[in-house]
Amino acid sequence: MLSNLYEHRTSDLGRLGRGGTKTNPLVGAVFVRNGQIITEGYHQDWGGPHAEAAAINQVNRDELSLCELYVTLEPCSHFGKTAPCSVLVIDSKISKVAIGQKDPNPVVNGRGIKMLRNAGVEVTHFQDSQSSKELLRPFLVNQEQERPYIILKWAESIDGYLSKHDQQIKLTNPISDRLVHKWRSEIDAIIVGTNTVLVDDPSLTTRLYPGSNPVRVIVDRNGRIPTSATVFDDQAPTWRCTLITTPRIKRVEDITISTKENQLLALMRQLFFRNTGVLMVEGGGQLLDSFLQTDLWDECRIFQTKHMLESGIPAPKLPIQPCASYAVLSDKLLLYKKYS
């Protein structure tokens, strides 16, 4: 059915906003009349026009009369950084709205649907809502748990090691490396631990793929990382998380880690309230284990390589089976999703 095509098109559009919307949802909108797409749009930047407005702004408002709107998320009903999309839809004389998901945000939560129906607009739900649910999964985690959507990522040797102790080891091939940089362009922040910085001196940027650099979150509880480390340069914003008072570094923002509760959960809450919608954990082993032990993760991406290390830092073990696997030249990429 054509309606299924329009539904899936909204998710395709919404994905284009990855890396820009922060704790706002990824939303795509398609306006259709007589089986023809009149206009479409997506939410591109946090604080910028919502998907419905982005689509409407591309055409003369008169062209939208009696159109049907397909949108991944319930149109908003409140004034925030933008005007309510429900009002915009009503003023555009849209006859029918099909939505993928109800908005869990307490300031919306069905009010947009009610506003539309009270104005005589027919509101239905997608026949196949799986693609919109998958697209909005990070936003649902943000709203329901007040923390970022957390992706664990690591590479391991064929015999199950992350690396040698205190030694920089290259495991993945150049295509896998570029894929990781693409992922970085689609998230808000990367987090790594002290040892990863001391041993690897990473830059944690998107230098191999076009796109914005995420915020670099550095866990340095006891201030062991020297100020000359690459993560403290001016290539990307950096937040340093510590338990102690450390010398100030220009361009680096310090975050004090709470000692009164679960430190990792408290840190995740702090990152969420700094508009971190999606966070990728890139190591090392101790930090990855901490996220797994506290059950703070939503997705995991593992590169299994053909290198043999024989000894070193053991890779973490997951209690579930992968939902998908792909060959990336000589590497094998395993994908895990806790909710699947």
Rank of each mutant, 00 (worst) to 15 (best):
L179F: 11
V180A: 15
H181D: 14
H181G: 10
H181K: 11
K182Y: 15
K182I: 12
W183I: 14
R184W: 10
R184N: 15
R184G: 13
R184I: 14
S185L: 10
S185E: 11
E186A: 12
E186R: 02
I187R: 04
I187W: 00
A189Y: 03
I190A: 06
I190S: 07
I190Q: 09
I190V: 15
I191A: 05
I191T: 08
V192Y: 03
V192A: 07
G193Y: 02
T194P: 00
T194M: 04
T194R: 07
N195C: 02
T196Q: 07
T196Y: 11
T196N: 05
L198D: 00
L198K: 12
V199T: 12
D200F: 10
D200Y: 11
D200N: 13
D201R: 13
P202A: 07
S203Y: 11
S203D: 12
L204D: 04
L204Y: 07
T205M: 04
T205P: 05
T206A: 14
T206Q: 08
R207Y: 15
L208T: 01
L208C: 06
L208V: 03
Y209E: 07
Y209N: 08
Y209F: 15
Y209Q: 09
P210F: 05
P210C: 07
P210I: 04
G211S: 15
S212M: 13
S212H: 10
S212Q: 13
S212K: 12
S212A: 13
S212F: 11
N213M: 08
P214E: 15
R216G: 08
R216I: 05
V217W: 03
V217H: 05
V217Q: 02
I218W: 10
I218M: 08
V219F: 09
V219D: 02
R221N: 12
N222P: 02
N222R: 10
N222F: 13
R224D: 15
R224L: 15
I225T: 06
I225Y: 07
I225L: 05
P226Q: 05
P226K: 04
P226E: 10
T227E: 10
S228T: 15
A229S: 12
A229D: 03
A229Q: 04
A229H: 00
V231C: 02
F232R: 03
F232C: 04
D233C: 09
D233T: 10
D233M: 05
D234F: 00
D234G: 03
Q235P: 00
A236V: 09
P237K: 12
T238Y: 02
W239L: 14
W239C: 00
R240K: 09
R240L: 10
R240Q: 09
C241Y: 06
T242R: 07
T242Y: 04
T242S: 13
T242D: 08
L243E: 05
L243W: 03
I244D: 15
I244H: 06
T245G: 08
T245K: 12
T246H: 03
T246Q: 07
T246C: 09
P247R: 07
P247W: 06
R248E: 15
R248F: 09
R248N: 13
R248W: 08
I249C: 01
I249V: 11
I249E: 02
I249Y: 00
K250V: 12
K250T: 13
V252Q: 07
E253R: 14
E253Y: 03
E253D: 14
D254R: 06
D254M: 03
I255L: 09
T256G: 03
